[in-house]
């Protein structure tokens, strides 16, 4: 039996899924921030005596191939992975938003040029862009963040542009212009407030993408410094030891998946909370 469906709109914090997702993000983020003060093992020092120990009381999530505590590395790794994600997102929004707003507002030849440049970036293979960025900047977590941020920026510009155009086509914008509002005034008073919701939702979606792909660069060995407990790099390190110590790669993967999942659920929640009627 087919039920007829009407989308519902629910405030963000009334959605149970969003609360669970937020809870997880707060847990991971909090642990990462507080890592130095938590009673954890050392995430970096190697030890010949405890190579690939299975999870048990001393090492809740086991040890990796160099005898390091997987739990300690996971918690510290949150700093690198989440930090990389936030910096990358900041860059994507910082570059994409102004371009999209300007392009959507000014229109004309500037719009064409900006959008063709966005096309140029999108047509450029993402992996090549990321690798080239890292090759130029040298390998570090910052380079990874810049690489994924740059890769995400064009899509953000596009979304910002279409959101802007949509708002500007609304009757009340015409009305505002008719009563003599300046372009700047229209932008600040009408456009920005109305594009915030969709752009926020899209930013959350992009954070998920950035986390996945940034960690992927580290997984490919293109990113972080040696021994850094970043989740993607941990996955790569543990991959050669699937037989003898699957926990060394399984747990970082789980942490990453749950975090990206939480971010994506949050994005859905934002969308649901701001869905136009």
């Amino acid at each position: 039996m087919i039920k007829w469906y009407k989308p519902r709109r629910r405030p963000l914090l009334r959605q149970p899924v969003v609360l669970v997702a937020l809870g997880w993000l707060v847990l991971v983020g909090g642990a990462a921030l507080l890592a130095p003060w938590l009673a954890l093992g050392d995430p970096v020092v190697v030890s010949a005596e405890r190579v690939l120990l299975s999870p048990k009381a001393d090492f809740l999530l086991g040890t990796d191939m160099l005898g390091r505590d997987v739990l300690a590395r996971l918690v510290w790794g949150g700093r690198w992975t989440l930090g990389m994600g936030l910096v990358g997102l900041g860059l994507a929004v910082g570059l994409g938003l102004p371009v999209g707003l300007v392009s959507g507002t000014v229109g004309g030849w500037l719009d064409v040029v900006l959008m063709r440049m966005v096309d140029g970036m999108l047509a450029f293979p993402g992996l090549l862009l990321a690798m080239a960025t890292i090759a130029v900047l040298g390998r570090s977590i910052i380079s990874v963040a810049v690489a994924v941020g740059l890769a995400a920026a064009p899509a953000y510009a596009r979304v910002a542009r279409s959101a802007t155009r949509e708002v500007r086509a609304q009757p009340y914008v015409d009305a505002a212009r008719a009563i003599g509002s300046t372009e700047g005034h229209v932008m600040v008073r009408h456009v920005l407030p109305n594009v915030t919701a969709p752009l926020l939702a899209f930013a959350a979606t992009q954070l998920g993408w950035i986390l996945l792909n940034g960690a992927a660069l580290n997984f490919l060995g293109l990113g972080v410094e040696l021994g850094t407990p970043e989740w993607g790099a941990m996955l790569a390190d543990g991959r050669g030891y699937l037989r003898d110590g699957p926990w060394a790669s399984a747990f970082p993967g789980l942490a990453l998946t749950l975090t990206v999942l939480a971010v994506n659920l949050l994005a859905d929640g934002v969308q649901e909370a701001t869905r136009p009627r």
Partner: peptide
Amino acid sequence: AVLSFSTPTYWSGILAILLFSL
């Protein structure tokens, strides 16, 4: 659906290898 695009293929791939191959 959300899980599918939240899961890194480098993790699901490893899990698949672990289960179906090893």
